[in-house]
Design a protein around this nucleic acid. Structure first.
Lengths: 206, 206
DNA sequence: GTCTATAAGGAGATAGAC
DNA sequence: GTCTATCTCCTTATAGAC
């Protein structure tokens, strides 16, 4: 990112980086400004509040992910394989940056106001991403055809997400072991990915 | 809790309640003092720092839970049932107060410094709770005897904890649905508890 | 658009009187 | 032990000059 780009974009870019690194509360507008190399008041000039800056950084990312979410659901593939693809999808996304999982947990899931806004925007009613409907229909069809055990589609998705996110939360901490190097982390996550696929698949098999 | 109790205990008691309700950062020492009905400086007189107050509140609770953790591992019971007991144990604990799961995630798991301190105190080496060793031995014995699939004991525990905690994180949010009343929440959690047991048990069956 | 200056409001912590 | 007074630091946000 060049120094000479317009300040608005540079603020967005720096904010994204710092929010991811230090969290929303851990990042002051003063620090963003200092990193950008501009005056702190400019952040308010362009984005009015820090919270609005957060959403201006965050929304485009969410929307991009929701678009990609369609691909793993390709109906020409075997159902169980599609489910594994969903696991791979989440793993792939969270692997892009190891600070992503903690960020999502802290700044989105655990913040009631933000979660409400997120849910209303992306999970409910009109604005709801079509990928969720496709996933639900696909699971219900398998249940009705007697090919998998009865499970609420949303719970299946919750199982996948819980296990995946927690793998990424726990990996850098080394759980009971302590911090470990990035190679060990990578191979741990690779193992976990396959374990989770097995667990999920065995859980819906008849 | 009587008004006339000594202030030190009342601070501990109020802090516990407020930390659980509003989180550590969301609770100021001033507010604790106001609720106790004492001067803000007294909190520093008794506990020196807010962080030390946190641990003075938190440690006894952790230690109590770790003691109880022995019971579900009773070796006279069938292994699969013991595993279900562990799930029940976590559910029972988190059901005591629905703010407990978010509290643990926010204040302990997601805070690197606190997590490090917690891990060093309760999960590692000398100070490690014996329940963890018992759990590990028990799982390894089943694997070696060829009665369950190969899995790292710590990963089995992680599966249980991830699924349980996330059930409690998600329940009050209603996930994609929105807030719901406490009866609905309760019956959702009861369903989830059985789903999770099935998932975990199917995941280790041969 | 960009700056200086500053408002306005917290927070946690300490000195020292009583 | 308990209080008043206060320090120090940091936050987001705004008014208004240039």
């Amino acid at each position: 990112m060049e120094r000479n780009q317009n300040i608005e974009k540079r603020i967005l870019w720096v904010a994204e980086r710092l929010f991811l690194e230090k969290g929303f509360n851990g990042t002051s507008t003063t620090e963003i400004a200092k990193t950008v190399g501009c005056n702190q008041t400019l952040i308010h000039y362009y984005f009015r509040t820090k919270e609005k800056l957060f959403w201006d950084v965050f929304s485009p990312k969410v929307e991009q992910v929701l678009e990609y979410l369609d691909a793993p659901l390709d109906e020409s593939i075997d159902f169980m394989e599609r489910i594994c693809n969903v696991v791979d999808f989440y793993f792939g996304m969270l692997e892009l940056d190891e600070r992503l999982a903690p960020f999502i947990v802290n700044e989105l899931i655990m913040n009631p106001v933000r979660w409400g806004k997120f849910r209303d925007r992306y999970l409910r009613n009109e604005s709801r991403s079509s990928a969720f409907d496709r996933f639900e229909n696909m699971v219900e069809e398998e249940i009705n055809s007697g090919r998998i055990r009865k499970i609420r589609p949303i719970d299946l998705l919750l199982n996948i997400m819980s296990l995946t996110i927690s793998a990424f939360i726990v990996a850098p901490k080394g759980f009971a072991i302590g911090e470990c190097d990035s190679n060990l982390r990578k191979s741990y996550l690779d193992d976990r990915r396959e374990d989770i696929k097995n667990l999920i698949v065995n859980g819906i098999k008849l």
